[in-house]
Design a protein around this nucleic acid. Sequence first.
RNA 1: GUCCCCAUCGUCUAGCCCGGUCCAGGACACCGGCCUUUCACGCCGGCGACAGGGGUUCAAAUCCCCUUGGGGACGCCA
Length: 467
Amino acid sequence: METVITRFAPSPTGYLHIGGARTALFNWLYARNRNGKFILRIENTDLQRSTKESTEAIFEGLTWLGIDWDEGPYFQTDRFDLYKEYAQKLFDAGRAYYCRCTPEELEAKRKISLERDGKVKYDGTCRGKELSPGDDTVLRFAADPSGNTPLNDKVKGGIIFNNEDIDDFIILRRDGTPTYNFAVVIDDVTMNVNTVIRGDDHVSNTPKQIQIYKALGAAVPAFAHAPMVLGKDKSRLSKRHGAMSVTAYREMGYLPEALINYLVRLGWSYGDQEFFTRGDLIEKFSLEHIGRSAGVFDPDKLLALNGEHIRSTPVSELAERLIPFLEKRGIHETPGPYLEKAVETLVQRSKTLEEMAESAVFYFSDTVAYDEKAAAKCLKPDAAEPVRVLIERLEDMEDFDEKSLEDAFKDVMEKTGLKLGKIAQPVRVALTGRTASPGIFEIVGILGKDKVIRRLSDALEFIESSS
RNA sequence: GUCCCCAUCGUCUAGCCCGGUCCAGGACACCGGCCUUUCACGCCGGCGACAGGGGUUCAAAUCCCCUUGGGGACGCCA
């Protein structure tokens, strides 16, 4: 069977966004699933808008997501000679002609025809004039004037375009650079791309491209147009909808595995399964299960999924990935048992690494910063007694294992006549500064005798001084 | 305006191709409850959809048509 060759061809005019990442993912996954080849190509024929920074950002985003490419990156700017060569072929074959209409004239024509019959199509003024190339000419493709161009889309099914709706579009600009609809085809032909997976905002370009393939006598690839990703208001995704760049999610503490899982699942399904590892995705991905309708990006679901991925990631690995987030808070921690134990207590309570780092601060700081409300609620005078008793009891202890801690707290309960809840909350605030935290025994065990007693004493002091 | 696509819970979706097993299943969110030293996790339960109208058929979420709604494309952008 023929080797599947797919590609991701972004234009470097901004960061890698959610929608682009999903397209990349679909192509990559399909290639991996079919044991094919995945190519990365940068479509930078628009010299004005393409930037080096955007190109770097795209590489960075893809790399973080774990999307690797087998070939490329290719840059269209390195291939201008090739486009000219193919343009010449079309010209020689009578399938392209020079046009001298100015942008202003075209604009006027568009306006008139739009008013007349609602159609916006080049009227073919220069077709048949046999103009020769010059500074003031563009090269246009001579499209089929009649008949139709069928597209057999892998996800949309069959679509038939009337050739009368397809105009003689420009393939080489006045400055000799190729336009998108022409360059993609030349690239895909010369790179042997046989499966084009892209957003369905490209469907209406497809018949134009198919005509180029045919005019060139090249094999038409399989097309799969995936539905769009929309924002909450069902309009096309944009900055208005919040964080849209892939790297923004990295910064917010999302795991690439989770983003991938979410993005792929948005528009593709595998029965009722929601959770997928990278391996699952590669194994199970198929074009047949890409949906036909557009989907709304739901940050809540992504967040929930991220929590799930965190819970299924080995603690040692999480610990390592957490370090940058601790650094951001001025905490310089190295991998090791202490970090890992701390992480272990936070896994179920964290939906992002960012959140985990925030909750982990008390494990690493010298003094505890009390949350105002927490202190007001729990570090009141009536908390002094149990805290004092606990300190005394703890001071006599050698081992801080769970069993002996439990006994210690029981003793405090007996001596003070208080329920565990009444004792645990003040202690929790004394140790962490907050009312919500991992289990008290866990924390005490990890922090160790010295830190625990110091923090309890600090709290006692706080209670006394503020009463 | 013209062309194209789409249409199941608020959202992502299963089911649709090969009509009956669907008074429509799962997930997120939301609301209850259980567990419990807090918060989570986990578990149990609830709320909640086949856009509307016509056909076809013994039978339609599933097939056909229309309407409506949404999206996309109409660039010397990609």
